[in-house]
């Protein structure tokens, strides 16, 4: 077991790169990403785990980065929106008008991307279970539903 009692330089694996960063034991991953690494794609919306705007993937699973300490991610693979390069869900969100203000979008994209990797044939129930973790205040969710379904089935639902 690693014990970290004070600010320590960690070597984190983020978006396929190793990044050295000075981390205090109390720092959340959201804080480290945004304030120390300039990865501002993950957004603070509640810092209480309720809105999902800060969602990132840790070892391919969605995690709300406001609810995990950076020190807990040692040795794990962290993927943020900045590390998503031309994956199908991005194009699908664009083409399905899956956002308006865009503030919740990074979080939704990370959940959707992970869902598509883990459950490529997810049914409605599974989709709902996964996407209820996040909040969008602008859309009526129909656009987001169309976006995720279009990559799961391979066709755009109109």
């Amino acid at each position: 077991m690693i014990k970290i009692a004070k600010a320590t330089v960690l070597n984190l694996h983020i978006n396929g790169e190793y990044r050295e960063v000075l981390v205090k034991p109390s720092d959340t991953l959201l804080y480290t990403l945004r304030n120390l690494l300039g990865l501002t794609g993950a957004k603070p919306g509640c810092e209480n785990g309720d809105c999902g705007a800060c969602t990132v993937l840790i070892d391919n699973r969605p995690i709300k980065s406001c609810l995990i300490l950076t020190v807990e991610t040692i040795g794990k693979r962290i993927l943020t929106i900045e590390g998503l390069k031309d994956v199908p869900i991005q194009k699908s969100f664009v083409e399905n008008w899956g956002f308006q203000c865009g503030y919740c979008t990074s979080g939704f994209l990370m959940v959707c991307h992970s869902l598509a990797q883990i459950h490529p044939n997810a049914n409605d129930h599974t989709i709902e279970e996964w996407l209820q973790s996040n909040l969008c205040r602008c859309t009526g969710y129909e656009e987001i539903e169309n976006a995720i379904k279009s990559i799961l089935t391979g066709t755009v639902r109109t």
């Binding site: 501002t40 794609g41 957004k43 929106i81 991005q90 969100f93 664009v94 083409e95 865009g102």
Partner: peptide, 18 residues
């Protein structure tokens, strides 16, 4: 398509909170 569409699906869009 929205002019800022690709900014908003890549994390490139900057808000004041950023």
């Amino acid at each position: 398509l929205r002019k800022e569409a690709w900014d908003k699906v890549t994390g490139a869009a900057k808000y004041n909170s950023d």
